[in-house]
Amino acid sequence: MSTYETAKDQFIDVKGVKYAYRYFGASTGTTLVFNVHFRGTSDHWDPDLINPIASTRPVLLIDNSGVGRSGGEIPDSFTGWAQNIVDVIEALNIKEVDVLGFSMGGFVAQLIALNCPHLVRKLILAGTGPSAGPGVQGGKPEYFGLLAAAATEEEYHNGFLKTFYSLSDKKQSLGELWWKRMTSARPNRVDYVGPEGTQRQIAAVMKWAGGEFREEGSYDRLDQIKIPVLIANGSNDVLVPTENSWILWKRLVNAEAHLHLFPDSGHGFLNEYADIFSKEIITFLDA
């Protein structure tokens, strides 16, 4: 069985765009599709989170258009992001999936579930929230700015550790361990999304968070989701405020929605608590 470290890069042409993906793990079970965070690629997941899950079911990682090893242009709306992921899933002839979205990937995951309900069996929303609506809070701009402006390896390292982990010595040490796991897991890794693509990602975020394009969002439609949903976050997320996970849970009135807040942690809770969270994901998907 392939692992995160050994899975081969594969490619598929869909609507004239060459997409990179990795499809690995167990040979039976419902495929779990992962959607990555702001500026991330398939090379920016934690193997300690991915591998326990992959040992129980197939895992699919997709670089969206313009991201990582994929061709094309980065969409400037999350409706476009979601449709690209659906197009690749369908091109691979996969009839039903579970979907996980982390951070910005959680915005994408919500729209996949909303726009293609026939495709999604269960949904996992990690460190994310609904689009603009009453009570939804924006993250601290200075933290988002650290990630948006990073251009060197040192700036990426400092930006992600300061925004994903609390600033105590203990938590920063855990962040260093995660960084080493992630950056040493695979050879020939690609870089984070570059400046031009980052601006297109920011445009999508602004549409999601600004409230001027409600039809591009999820807030007014969350009652349409009627499948089991697992929502998780750290207790003090400075990028996507933890309160938004609570609002997301309350808005999912027709779903079987579960909410888990991990103690003394932030946006990077899924890496800090990789062992616990991966087991929780498996239990949720198997239930």
Rank of each mutant, 00 (worst) to 15 (best):
G105N: 09
N64R: 06
T6E: 06
L114C: 06
G72L: 10
T3H: 11
K122M: 03
E256V: 04
K207S: 09
S168E: 12
G101R: 03
A126K: 07
Q201C: 10
P187G: 10
H118R: 13
L60A: 04
T163S: 15
Q10Y: 03
I62H: 08
L252F: 06
D76R: 14
D223I: 01
K18V: 01
I276Q: 15
S166M: 12
W45K: 10
G145P: 01
F213T: 10
A232N: 07
S184Q: 15
P263F: 08
F102R: 01
V229M: 03
Q137W: 01
S70Q: 11
I12L: 12
R189S: 13
H44P: 04
P263S: 08
I62P: 04
K15E: 14
R121Y: 02
L92Q: 06
I85P: 00
L261A: 05
E216S: 06
G234N: 10
D9P: 07
D169F: 13
I202V: 14
P228S: 06
L177P: 00
I225M: 04
S245F: 04
G80P: 10
R22A: 12
K226I: 00
D237Y: 11
E215P: 10
E196Q: 14
N271E: 12
A20T: 00
S278C: 07
T56E: 15
D264L: 07
D63Q: 09
G211E: 04
G29R: 13
K18P: 00
V193Y: 05
I282Q: 12
K207D: 01
L285I: 04
Q201I: 03
G127T: 09
T198R: 15
D76G: 10
F144H: 15
E176Q: 15
A91T: 09
F164T: 02
Y21R: 11
S27H: 13
Q110A: 01
A82R: 07
I74D: 05
T56Q: 15
L146F: 08
G210Q: 08
S173F: 11
N64S: 13
G210T: 07
A149I: 00
R69N: 12
G72A: 06
E155S: 14
F107I: 01
H44Q: 14
F277T: 03
K162S: 15
R221A: 04
G139F: 07
I247G: 04
P130R: 02
Y156H: 14
S27A: 14
R121F: 01
L239P: 04
L239T: 09
I85K: 13
K162R: 14
L259I: 03
Q110N: 08
E256N: 15
L111V: 02
L161N: 09
G194S: 13
E196N: 13
S265R: 06
G25C: 10
L146T: 02
P241Q: 11
G106H: 06
P263Y: 09
I112E: 02
S77A: 07
S103K: 11
G234H: 08
Y273D: 07
E243G: 12
Y23R: 13
F78C: 02
R69F: 04
L100M: 15
I94Y: 03
L100K: 04
T198N: 11
P47Y: 07
R39W: 05
E5Y: 02
